[in-house]
């Protein structure tokens, strides 16, 4: 039960899968079922190009089971196909390829297909708009490989789902999941540093030893050629407002002052670096920090791959647990014990 009570500590939750068929929907349904009926939930899913079928396997998108009182947002088309008795509350101004996004409240438990706003910005708007129905918890069913839907701007907490679908080699699976978990759990930069960089939306910036803000006058870390020497020159902290790339990380890694700098990004969804370059950066003594972080509540594993390959659930949970410092669950196997 600690899992569910942990979730209830936060106002918002995102569930993101590292690969298709890692059990994202199972996980969502599990949470929706276990949350106490006093907890008012608002839920939506990031809609990817309005697919109603799994593009890879051709199977129908799984339906979500919603309890009475739950508020949900989905597209007009899916609303028409709902198998739930619900009261329509709002037609939002968001649109998707499956029509406008509508919000409704469940009057009698049933099943729906969720396909909500399709960009991180639209999701953030959804989250603030749905506040008027005063939910205790908003849940976003994130999309495959769309970590942006788990941005701390949208949700305070998140759950990662991973499994044999991501890799059938247990060691690889654990290593790659561990890397993502590390990024999610990156430490927040010092308050003074956060205050300086907060609100900056583009470019590369630094702070000198006297605490002054330095603008490196580049649009993004992609245009780093211009700033070869300056970055590490005298800064104590360097902030990349946009995407953090391998090249930029390499630039900081190769600096003689790598140990003296805090490299800061907005949040983990802005990190686009390979595991290798990140490890190298750490080995050289580099420190990567974030302005905003969300709480990683758990890692849920699905030992079954869609091709039928099954990993040993207990062993997988054990190995994963050793690698990451957050609770690891196999929801299907242990549904009664967690």
């Amino acid at each position: 039960m600690s899992f569910i009570s942990e979730i209830q500590k936060f106002k918002s939750l995102s569930i993101v899968g590292l690969e298709k068929n890692t059990g994202k929907t199972v996980c969502l349904n599990y949470i929706l079922e276990r949350l106490p009926s006093t907890c008012r939930v608002a839920v939506t899913s990031i809609g990817i190009d309005g697919e109603s079928k799994d593009q890879v396997t051709g199977t129908a998108k799984p339906e979500i089971i919603l309890k009475e009182g739950t508020v949900f947002s989905t597209s007009e088309v899916f609303y028409a196909r709902r198998r739930v008795l619900s009261e329509l509350l709002e037609i939002t101004s968001e649109r998707s390829s499956l029509g406008r996004i509508v919000t409704a409240r469940v009057l009698r438990s049933g099943k729906v297909l969720l396909s909500g706003p399709s960009s991180a910005q639209a999701l953030a708007r959804w989250a603030s708009g749905v506040e008027k129905f005063s939910p205790d918890l908003t849940i976003v069913d994130g999309a495959l490989s769309r970590l942006s839907s788990a941005s701390p701007v949208i949700s305070e907490s998140l759950i990662l789902t991973t499994g044999a679908a991501y890799s059938v080699d247990m060691a690889t699976l654990v290593r790659r999941t561990k890397f993502i978990v590390e990024l999610v759990r990156l430490e927040r930069a010092d308050d003074t540093v956060c205050r300086k960089f907060d609100g900056i939306e583009r470019g590369v910036w630094g702070i000198d030893p006297d605490g002054n803000l330095i603008d490196f006058h580049v649009e993004s870390s992609l245009a780093i050629d211009k700033i070869k020497d300056d970055v590490a020159g005298k800064s104590v902290a360097v902030f990349v407002a946009g995407a953090l790339t391998d090249r930029f990380l390499g630039l900081v890694s190769n600096s003689r002052r790598v140990r003296e700098i805090d490299l800061v990004v907005t949040d983990f969804t802005k990190i686009f670096v390979s595991e290798e370059s990140y490890r190298l950066f750490l080995k050289k003594g580099g420190r990567l920090k974030v302005l905003r972080k969300s709480k990683l509540i758990a890692v849920c594993v699905n030992p079954t791959s869609p091709r039928g390959f099954v990993l040993d659930s207990d062993l997988l949970c054990k190995k994963m647990q050793e690698a990451v410092e957050v609770p690891v669950y196999d929801i299907v196997k242990n549904r009664e014990t967690i």
């Binding site: 008795l85 009261e87 329509l88 709002e90 409704a104 409240r105 009057l107």
Partner: peptide, 10 residues
């Protein structure tokens, strides 16, 4: 029909 005057419908 229930005269609730709430912007919702089913």
């Amino acid at each position: 029909p229930e005269g609730m005057r709430i912007e919702s419908f089913y």
